[in-house]
């Protein structure tokens, strides 16, 4: 398991440090309570909120970044997904129909990203920027630019219900991560993704389906965004086309990079990204608990992320080693 040692170390250390700080600064932080057949508490909230958006998005984003790309459209695709589901249930569709259609559409739009990148050979940042703008527009179109509230027990259960005492998003994201991990490492897709990100030309010349790899990761990223959008809409029992998922793609990128997957592509760690996302969510809540005004909260957040990313840099670690043991001149 040496693959997991280095990428996980720093985000985990940062997470633990943050938790220790919270334990000291806000008494009752770790209190967990069993009520009406489910768990309540700050820690559960962090996991729940973390699972709903950053963790899910980070799963898809990890694979995209591992191929050396980036997906800026996930925030907008969240809005598309929420809008489709809300409009569908309001039109009397069943839960399965609404969810199925939303996920299908988001995976399809992710696939379009993949086609633009793998076949049309657009730069990932441009292709997904186009989809980011187009997706937001599509969500507006579907909802008539209005917030769409809905009353549908099944759909609201997704974010508010509990399975085995845990809020649904937690087991859901763990399940998706586990499935993805087993699928990628049990087949050769994991290797193909890492190879494509490390050297695309060499991978193509070794017979790898590099185009197929790209289609797959962008479609998966779209699917993850779709799931996240459903949970986000379910949480407030409404789809808000203008604000849903706004700038959340950046959270996902932060989580992935903090989790030890390099933006230049190659090696990836799903577990690292999940920890990175959890770190981000804990940080958000910590700042809120410390009464840092939401408007300035991004500043300390950015600093912590910077530190974690710097810790990942091999160059910096080498420099650090040089400071500690200056060689004889």
């Amino acid at each position: 398991m040496n693959r997991f040692r280095t990428p996980l170390l720093w985000p985990l250390a940062a997470l633990v440090a943050l938790l220790v700080f919270n334990a000291l600064a806000s008494p009752g932080f770790f209190d967990v309570e069993w009520k009406d057949g489910r768990l309540y508490g700050t820690v559960v909230d962090i996991c729940n909120q973390g699972a709903r958006v950053p963790m899910l998005l980070a799963l898809g984003m990890t694979l995209v970044i591992a191929t050396g790309g980036v997906d800026l459209s996930v925030g907008s695709l969240m809005a598309v997904s929420g809008a489709v589901a809300a409009v569908q249930v309001n039109a009397g569709a069943s839960l399965g129909q609404a969810v199925g259609l939303a996920l299908l559409l988001c995976s399809g739009l992710g696939l379009v990203n993949g086609v633009l990148i793998a076949k049309v050979r657009l730069q990932p940042i441009i292709a997904t920027l186009v989809m980011m703008v187009a997706g937001r527009g599509l969500a507006m179109l579907l909802t008539g630019s209005q917030m769409v509230p809905f009353k549908h027990e099944g759909l609201t259960f997704l974010a508010n219900g509990a399975v085995g005492g845990l809020p649904v998003p937690i087991p859901l994201v763990l399940g998706v991560a586990l499935l993805a991990g087993v699928a990628l490492r049990g087949s050769a897709w994991g290797l193909f993704i890492e190879a494509t990100g490390d050297n695309e030309t060499a991978s193509r010349l070794a017979g790898l389906p590099t185009g197929g790899v790209r289609l797959l990761v962008y479609a998966f990223s779209g699917l993850c965004a779709g799931m996240s959008g459903l949970l986000e809409a379910s949480n407030i029992a409404a789809a808000d086309p203008a604000r849903m998922g706004d700038t959340r793609e950046l959270d996902a990128i932060f989580a992935v990079v903090a989790g030890g997957t390099a933006l230049t592509g190659g090696r990836f760690s799903l577990a690292g990204s999940l920890v990175g996302a959890l770190l981000l969510q804990t940080l958000t809540l910590t700042l809120y608990n410390q009464n840092v005004p939401p408007a300035v909260a991004p500043v300390p957040k950015a600093l912590v992320i910077l530190v974690v990313c710097l810790l990942h840099s091999p160059k910096l670690r080498e420099q650090w080693g040089r400071w500690r043991s200056p060689s004889p001149a």
């Binding site: 190879a195 490390d198 050297n199 190659g266």
Partner: peptide, 16 residues
Amino acid sequence: VEGILPSLSVRENIVL
């Protein structure tokens, strides 16, 4: 440019 995958292992490069 067209041969090695520099950050992957020797094993992975060989089985690719």
